[in-house]
Write a protein that binds this DNA or RNA. Structure first.
Lengths: 255, 255
DNA sequence: ATTCTTAGGATTATCGATAATCCGCCGCTC
DNA sequence: GAGCGGCGGATTATCGATAATCCTAAGAAT
């Protein structure tokens, strides 16, 4: 593909970034960063320099980014040698990257048949939204306290979300929505809940494509306001209830 | 390839099974089988012959089994070439197996430092038990109906659990306990909840080692009876509440 | 025309070897 | 004797090549 590159020795981030569709790259990066952080947490307390050294980790990061930003569509084939050539690597590290992505459910592969970006059926999506609601409710009940500073972050994200929806920027809506919810769940004392929520987030990546009911989107977004209010007044239990209902609300759109 | 084998084509289960500590192998097998099934579900609707073909899947299965049955202790080093020699394979499939195990949190690896069986801190274990309680409560509320046949299964497992505890067979207790809970969660309509619960089960493998408070074990087991009663009378919501409390009850033993 | 068989091309799975990195040990300096 | 710097063994990371498998489609048989 974008073969013989310029400088970067093995996997040049340049090629990754200069390539295709690019909208709000910074936002996407932050999402990706949180995912990487998730795995870092799982692997070691301070998950930092892990993906700097290993080619297979860089490849995994790059593929994940492309899946998240829509470069690779759901169902799209991921050929090992093609990716290897693109990254100026051999097949082995690409395979390892795909194995990890397969294990966390981002990619689906069959022996001798290759790997594809995993597609989510409406049923799976419905189940995922329900589970997200359950986890967010539980997480909220485990929050020790919700400081004013965090409330302000919520308001910022909420405002950005409304701005994005009026601008018709679905990508932006998805991103700020995710940030909003993450800001809440991250305050949870229970790391396993947080981990489960994040691993679910990976599967929810099917950006708002599924939200074909664009007309109902604005009203869905407005339901974030009461959540902010409940959190500000420290009514965590009620906030949890609202979050659960909020997620369950999407279910009806999905069969 | 490694043609000249005896019977089992590549990875001879013989060597795997003839090796070390062995207690109630059949029970362990069933646990493993359920885990494999879990991944099968994730990979394709009918996850069956996937791990028959690929060496890396068989290796993953074998390593997982050894971790589950205690052959590989938490923290133990897993050397790639040692495993490769043992399975009569090259390094590549072993690496792929380890990458997958790493992604699901069973193994932890650092670049150039190798892979180890992941250890769970008391805090992680506490969080895991809490999450399990939450998931089981949610799952129960999503159950459509709980037939008499399933109730009988629960009673069977419950009886086996009590028998195991009087016999001092901790492995057996853990296994039947797991079967008991699985029988409930499997009736859940929401596949994502089921998946999350199963992936948690992998981390809870730290068998009942943690349950050093052996004296309190019998009473903890008795708390299964009201759950059975609630399910038999169709009081699913109450059963969910009991299951949550049941799991949370273990938390106090773990700080 | 339809079905069956079977080359051919494409891709994955595995191998064996090499490069890169880490760790402990030994001698050296002070 | 203590600290330091670099050799050597051990192990992982990556490579390039080969074997195994799958898919397609052309051709033969009915």
């Amino acid at each position: 593909m974008n073969g013989h590159e310029t400088v970067q020795p093995p996997l040049d981030d340049a090629s990754v970034a200069s390539d295709p569709v690019r909208a709000s790259t910074a936002e996407i990066k932050s999402v990706i960063a949180s995912m990487i952080a998730e795995e870092g947490e799982r692997n070691s307390a301070a998950g930092t320099a892990l993906d700097r050294n290993c080619a297979h980790d860089r490849v995994r990061w790059a593929i994940l980014e492309r899946i998240m930003d829509g470069t690779y569509q759901p169902g799209e084939r991921l050929k090992e040698l093609t990716l290897a050539r693109e990254f100026h690597l051999s097949q082995a590290p690409v395979r390892e990257a795909l194995r990890k992505l397969e294990a966390i459910g981002v990619v689906k592969s069959e022996p001798y048949r290759g790997a594809r970006v995993r597609e989510l059926s409406p049923t799976e999506l419905r189940d995922a939204y329900q589970l997200r609601g359950i986890l967010e409710q539980a997480a909220t009940e485990f929050i020790a306290d919700f400081p004013e500073e965090a409330v302000r972050t919520l308001e910022t994200e909420y405002a950005a979300m409304r701005a994005a929806v009026t601008a018709g920027d679905l990508q932006g809506v998805a991103c700020h929505n995710r940030n909003f919810h993450r800001c809440i769940v991250e305050r949870c004392q229970n790391q396993e809940i947080l981990r489960a929520w994040k691993s679910l987030g990976i599967c929810m990546r099917a950006r708002l494509n599924v939200q074909r009911r664009l007309d109902r989107l604005p009203e869905a977004i407005l339901s974030h306001q009461p959540i902010i209010d409940a959190l500000r007044t420290g009514n965590l239990r009620y906030a949890g209830q609202l979050l659960r209902d909020h997620s369950f609300g999407f279910v009806s759109d999905l069969v």
